[in-house]
Design a protein around this nucleic acid. Structure first.
Length: 739
RNA sequence: AGACCCGUAGCUCAGUUUUGGUUAGAGCGCUGCAUUGACAUUGCAGAGGUCGAUGGUUCGAGUCCAUUCGGGUCUACCA
């Protein structure tokens, strides 16, 4: 054995061996299985990924060593919007836009990016020593996965659990696509509320509405007051003249209006506000010759849309307000209202602005046709599985978060107006009739169509729609494969709390729908890795650490280069460089994968936010050194017994301690408390085995049992620190722990 | 508006439900001594906590209950 422990050389050797190896406990009837939360092919892996993969690999190895047939299904996610954005940004650097290329050419670009990113990601996962059968690698947009997605869509449609609807959606004007409720981030900020006078028809009276979005007034279709509001009782039924447009709007009385709020008087803009839409629908508002009419025919309802796809005002908006960005419209409207003395008050008001999760642009509610999944029935089935204990969360507390959302779940908008994704299997004829099916032939057959021309829906599906099928589709569903038979439902899901709604809940719904089975039994919910100051790691903050830089170390210049490359905003680089040089004056040292891995386990507490500390990492690197040196020391003694054979008090004592610790560790592992488990490992090896037993053996010279005891310990420690234990084991015992 | 989480040693955090129980734990840091004879170090010894605050239940509260202060997250809504 080398005098010093050189982790990276050893690790590279074993990582390669393991990436080509398949675990074979195929004869075991007991399955342990889990699926990787497929990483997005948007770039490279970060600390959060390696944290979770360490845990997943731990359980794979642990269960394999317990004799089970352990399967860890690996793959990656096409991540529709996110990946498309990355590729579009890259092209933009060369002055090329998506539309310059056209759909087909653009998709070629995305596929080549996918290959590039996938290569990086898989080599990272391999380097961490993950125990994976790479032949079973899947991608959420490969052909057979598409088969599963199409089947899911068509079946849901034919069971009337998917429908197409024309209604308001969260529209991202920068990406020009609809997004789901979950992809909208609310940002609280200080804004204004404006009080605006609208003249009442045939009178000198005015009515004052309060609004935070004056620019949408061109889409106003009614004024609403509370019928119990004595101030306005008499004007219900009268009409107002919408300034600039001269459209006649009815004044309606509805309980929805809060008497206390604002002026107690609300403008109704059904084309641009979700609540107004509901009211507009209730009264079937529609325009006839410049006047808004009320009816009880719901089919009459026709909201007025005043924006284009990019949220610039359209032709429904008069001069000089049309063909402007919505914020310019707002500014101009306020100016002109002021000139007309119709703007009577500007009040500070706390508002929450909806922003796109990816684009960060302000979301504009927009009327459009979109596809939706009906969720309520599926959700209650999923809830049942949690309530009757079929699925359990660890820590349990996350159940509350889960139910909080599931009990108020809305229908899920699954269509996206982008190019990268699973194309929606729906076809239109020239009369805009819609037909859903597996392919065009099947559609014609199913609907008994003549040879009319059909064209496929241009839209693609929300990435999370395909991800929701991952636990069974990645194992071969809808085909019956040996993996699906043996390893589904899976035993464990390791994932972050941030995607409980996006992913965990939806997998539960889809799995129960299509397989009549839960997708997983235990959900191990991890916290989010933050930097030492508790800040979320992000490119723009410049505090990201690449896990492989902890393994190999990195010079300060390279680290600065890495952190300041490809920044979205100008001028950040200098600040990031200063902070980085201050925190890591000499760069980052090499710590090795085992040290990193054990650090992750020690951080796997029940806490939501996990501060990544270098001092802890250093501590576990010292622990690895300790293991190495203990082994080297033992290796210097004569071989002694093949099998542990206690002959003195010291032997008996360490064996008892070993059994005690092993039992504790087993319990902690089964309770999903790897932080406790790794503490026990550390404490046993260092304080008991080294400080007491080894010292005693040194003194007494009774060293016959050192090797067999070390071997037992190495095997026990292997899932915690696979590289070093495997290396020592093969050096000293000429055999691998996992063959 | 509702829900949830956090506040314990200088720092980062365990411990709080099922099971309230003698001197409240860990790692790192700190102090002192020893050490290059397995240890890119290690060993031994040690200091350091009114467990956010107040009140209650109890023989006994970090742990249970109520109130409160500070920090954070999520969901819904906000004309």
């Amino acid at each position: 054995m080398d005098k010093t422990y050189h982790p990276t050389e050893i690790e590279e050797k074993w990582a390669k061996i393991w990436s080509e190896r398949k675990l074979t406990n195929e004869n075991s009837n007991e399955s342990f299985s889990q699926v990787i939360p497929p990483p997005n092919v948007t770039g490279t892996l970060h600390m959060g990924h390696s944290f979770q993969y360490a845990i997943m690999d731990f359980y794979t190895r642990y269960n394999h060593m317990s004799g089970k047939d352990a399967h860890w299904q690996v793959g990656s996610d096409h991540a529709g919007i996110a990946t498309q954005m990355v590729v579009e940004n890259n092209l933009l650097k060369d002055g090329i836009s998506r539309s310059d290329l056209g759909r087909e050419e653009f998709l070629k670009e995305v596929w080549s990016w996918k290959n590039f990113s996938e290569e990086k990601i898989t080599s990272q996962i391999k380097r961490l020593g993950s125990t994976i059968d790479w032949e079973k690698y899947r991608f959420t947009l490969d052909d057979s996965f598409n088969e599963a997605v199409i089947k899911a869509f068509v079946e849901l449609y034919r069971k009337k659990k998917i429908y197409r609807g024309y209604r308001l959606v969260n529209w991202d004007p920068s990406l020009k696509t609809a997004v789901s409720d979950l992809e909208v981030i609310r940002q609280e900020k200080d804004g204004f509320i404006w009080h605006i006078k609208y003249p009442i028809e045939n009178s000198k009276e005015f009515i004052t509405v309060a609004t935070t979005r004056p620019e949408t007034m061109f889409g106003d279709m009614a004024i609403a007051v509370n019928p119990n509001d004595t101030r306005y009782k008499d004007i219900i039924g009268k009409k107002v003249l919408l300034p600039f447009v001269e459209r006649k709007l009815p004044i309606i009385g509805d309980d929805y209006v809060d008497i206390e709020f604002g002026t107690g008087c609300l403008k109704i803009t059904p084309g641009h506000d979700f609540n107004d839409y509901e009211i507009g629908k209730k009264y079937s508002l529609h325009e006839v010759d410049g006047e808004i009419k009320i009816s009880n025919q719901s089919s009459d309802f026709k909201p007025i849309n005043i924006f284009n796809d990019d949220a610039w005002s359209n032709d429904n908006v008069p001069e000089p307000f049309n063909n402007l960005d919505r914020f310019k419209v707002r500014k101009l409207v306020l100016e002109k209202l002021k000139e007309l003395n119709l703007l009577i008050k500007e009040e500070k008001h706390h508002i929450s602005v909806p922003r796109g999760e990816r684009s960060n642009i302000v979301i504009e509610p927009k009327l459009s046709y979109q596809w939706y999944v009906k969720t309520s029935e599926m959700a209650s089935k999923a809830n049942e599985a949690v309530n009757n204990g079929e699925i359990s969360f660890h820590p349990e507390n996350w159940i509350k978060t889960y139910f909080n959302w599931m009990n108020n779940i809305e229908d899920w908008c699954i269509s996206r107006q982008i190019w990268w994704g699973h194309r929606i299997p729906a076809w239109f004829d020239n009369d805009k009739n819609v037909y859903v099916g597996y392919d065009e032939d099947e559609v014609r057959q199913f609907y008994n169509l003549d040879n009319r021309k059909l064209s496929q829906d241009e839209d693609v599906l929300d990435t999370w729609f395909s991800s929701s099928l991952w636990p069974f589709a990645s194992m071969g569903w809808p085909n019956n494969t040996p993996d699906y038979d043996k390893h589904f439902p899976t035993s464990l899901l390791v994932t972050g709390f941030d995607i409980i709604f996006f992913w965990v809940a939806r997998m539960m719904m889809m799995s129960l729908e299509f397989t009549d089975n839960i997708p997983f039994k235990d959900v191990y919910v991890t916290g989010l890795i933050r930097d030492e100051n508790g800040q979320k790691m992000s490119k723009s903050k410049g505090n990201v650490i690449d896990p492989l830089d902890l393994v190999y170390g990195i010079s300060i210049d390279d680290l600065v280069k890495k952190r300041t490359a490809n920044l979205m905003q100008e001028g950040q680089a200098e600040k990031i460089e200063r902070k980085t040089r201050k925190q890591f004056p000499n760069g980052i040292e090499s710590y090795g994968t085992d040290a990193l891995r054990m650090t992750f386990f020690s951080l796997a507490t029940h806490s939501k936010d996990i501060s990544f500390e270098f001092s802890r990492l250093k501590g576990y690197r010292n622990f690895c050194t300790k293991i190495w040196n203990a082994a080297r020391f033992i290796n210097g003694f004569p071989e002694g017994n093949k099998v542990f054979d206690p002959k003195n008090d010291n032997d008996i004592w360490i064996n008892e301690e070993f059994v005690k610790s092993a039992n504790k560790i087993k319990r902690h592992v089964e309770d999903y408390r790897l932080d406790f488990a790794i503490n026990e490992v550390y404490e046993f090896f260092w304080s008991k085995f080294c400080d007491v037993y080894l010292e005693e053996c040194k003194k007494s010279g009774k060293t016959n049992n050192l090797r067999p005891m070390l071997q037992k310990i190495l095997i026990m420690m292997h899932p915690f620190a696979p590289f070093i234990t495997e290396e020592i084991h093969s050096l000293l015992f000429d055999a691998q722990i996992i063959e």
